[in-house]
């Protein structure tokens, strides 16, 4: 709601609409943050099976990794808890350079 432009409620509406259109859909949600995380807990990124996405879970730095994981969650139906942080080599590569750590829960819309 503090984000000008797309609001989180629009993102969840899109998730519902996309699923009703028959697309495979995953919702990624920020569930925990430490330090200076770019987006607060409860922020959503919605991804479809063609890698279209709406919303954000970071300033744009880890969305790529989340989208790849979302594709796998859409396939398997098994939710995942992802963690990104500066201490983590992979995460640094993914670019969470703001100094924060975040956990993101990725679930399929069934």
């Amino acid at each position: 709601m503090t984000n000008p432009g797309i609001r989180d409620d629009d993102v969840l509406k899109a998730a519902e609409q996309w699923r009703r259109e028959g697309r495979g859909v995953a919702i990624a949600t920020v569930v925990q943050t430490w330090g200076s995380a770019p987006r607060p807990v409860g922020s959503h990124l919605v991804i479809d099976d063609k890698q279209n996405f709406l919303g954000s879970v970071s300033g744009g730095c880890i969305e790529g990794e989340v989208i790849v994981n979302a594709g796998e969650v859409i396939e398997s139906g098994k939710p995942r808890l992802l963690e990104f942080g500066v201490a983590d080599e992979t995460a640094w590569r993914a670019g969470l350079s703001c100094g924060g750590n975040i956990r993101i829960y990725v679930q399929r819309v069934d």
Binding site: D9, K13, E16, R19, R20, D110
Partner: peptide, 13 residues
């Protein structure tokens, strides 16, 4: 998340 639960949530919102 089940679609019906998501739909209920969106209706409340």
């Amino acid at each position: 998340m089940r679609l019906d639960l998501l739909a209920d949530l969106n209706a409340e919102r």
